[in-house]
Design a protein around this nucleic acid. Structure first.
Length: 415
RNA sequence: GCGGGUGUAGCUCAGUUGGUUAGAGCGCGAGGUUGUGGUUCUUGAGGUCGCCGGUUCGAUCCCGGUCACUCGCCCCA
């Protein structure tokens, strides 16, 4: 028989992985709810156009990395490569544009056909938020504060820094882009091959090139600030002021650029030095044009997405909670009794481990390995007298107790 | 999509300058007198040395390809 391997870039998540995953998503949802966000679930696949129209045909995510397929009805569909486009589509489809503002939280798998690496998979998981319908620098600041809050709640804030930039409004951005093209065209033969392509596709991207030759040219490139309209400058200044009043530390990175077309104004990224090349953990910005691209009214939005696997790499191992009590029956005759007793205890809110193995020593071994604090042993004598032998595993002591007293004994220890 | 590294037991890794039965630690199973774990002792199971092909009398080891992981580029969370 052939033994199948998982598809390249996909992984099975075993117990410790799932615990870490759930801890991250639950924490994120809990904090987001405190900020008024509601969870939304959108399909894992959409019309391919939902993504190509919103992210831009030229972006690598669309042109190279998207899983696109034709379904049996002949529709061109795509597995979602990110979360924002689907949420924005749902926002329009469901007529929510009539009741603004809206705050959405989402979490789930995303798919990108990329070469796998540490912190990069073909099926990976993100959670994110979208704050739709408000054009205020305070909304940007609140969204960033939410991201920082979640990272802090997970204990990840020490290894992570926040980088901030503005792309300006559309007017600023186009003017700046033109200036960059004019500047870099003069040196196009000195640019790295990648950046020569960027000059055509996305000139802003040359700014964060890692090539030393490119970086030297970037030093003397036109300055972003002089192309910002006064509105864009004010907006950014107010984002910064709000962050400062919230005591959220950040550093300005004029070369921080977002790859997806829908961004304008604020761009930000929380990144960790502990992750190698895939340093970005949580990133996003403002995207005032996207909803319109998807057929809705012009709607101001800000949001971000976060890579769950990258957080899992930073999170220390999550230890499972042991059950409160393990019940062991001495022989098969007491097993049914043990099952009923377990149900009684569970009804009182205790977690109970029960397995149906043959040897008692094996049961004990399992109990001590799980670090169960208490074991109840039921043999013939206990069964007839309605008692259990209650063993305290840490102390190594045990006594025969009535079922009620044994229950109370364990409950007292846990409350 | 491009370049470098790695691939031996469930896990972490030794090893063979190409030669007969491939090792350790952890983990797992059994036992140390029939109702008691965490320590210890004894013992057992488990590997087509990633896969396919080539060179060779002979390959886990050399060569080629392939797959996976990993590091960097690209891109991005």
């Amino acid at each position: 028989m052939t033994i199948f391997q998982p598809v390249r870039g996909t992984h099975d998540y075993l117990e410790a992985d799932v615990r870490a995953y759930q801890k991250i998503v639950r924490t994120a949802l809990h904090v987001a709810e405190n900020y008024g966000y509601q969870e939304i679930m959108t399909p894992l696949f959409e019309q391919a156009q939902v993504f190509s129209r919103s992210l831009g045909d030229m972006s690598d995510v669309i042109s190279k990395e998207m899983y696109v397929f034709e379904d049996k009805g002949g529709d061109l569909l795509a597995l979602r490569p990110e979360g924002t486009a689907g949420v924005a589509r749902a926002f329009v489809s469901n007529g929510l544009t009539q009741s603004l503002p809206q705050k959405f939280f989402y979490a789930g798998p995303m798919f990108r056909y990329e070469r796998p690496q540490k912190g990069r998979q073909r099926q990976f998981h993100q959670f994110g938020v979208e704050f739709m319908g408000v054009f205020s620098p305070l909304a940007d600041a609140e969204a960033i504060a939410l991201g920082a809050h979640i990272l802090k709640e997970l204990g990840l804030d020490k290894s992570i820094t926040l980088k901030l930039n503005t792309l300006g409004d559309l007017e600023s951005r186009t003017a700046y882009q033109t200036a960059l093209i004019n500047y870099f065209k003069k040196y196009s033969s000195d640019l790295s091959p990648e950046s020569q392509i960027r000059l055509e596709k996305n000139p802003l991207r040359i700014l964060d090139s890692k090539d030393p030759g490119d970086q030297a040219l970037v030093q003397n490139a036109p300055d972003r600030d002089s192309f910002l309209t006064s509105e864009a400058q004010d907006f950014f200044a107010n984002v910064r002021k709000a962050l400062e009043s919230l005591n959220i530390p950040y550093e300005i990175d004029p070369y921080l650029v977002r790859g997806l077309d829908y961004y304008s104004h604020t761009a930000f990224e929380f990144s960790s030095s502990a992750l190698g090349a895939q340093a970005a953990v949580l990133g996003g910005g403002r995207y005032n044009g996207l909803v319109e691209q998807l057929g809705g009214p012009p709607t101001a939005c800000v949001g971000w997405g976060a890579g769950i696997e990258r957080m899992m790499l930073l999170l220390e191992k999550c230890i499972p909670l042991p059950p409160h009590v393990t019940i062991i029956s001495v022989s098969q005759e007491q097993e049914l009794l043990a099952l009923n007793l377990a149900q009684q205890a569970r009804a009182k809110g205790l977690s109970v481990w029960l397995d149906f193995q043959v040897s008692m020593a094996k049961h004990m071994k399992k109990a001590s390995k799980m670090k169960t604090p208490f074991v109840w042993i039921i043999g013939e004598e206990e069964a007839t007298s309605g008692t259990v032998t209650c063993r305290n595993m840490q102390k190594g002591t045990q006594e025969v107790l009535s079922i009620d007293r044994a229950m109370a004994y364990v409950l007292r220890d846990h409350k």
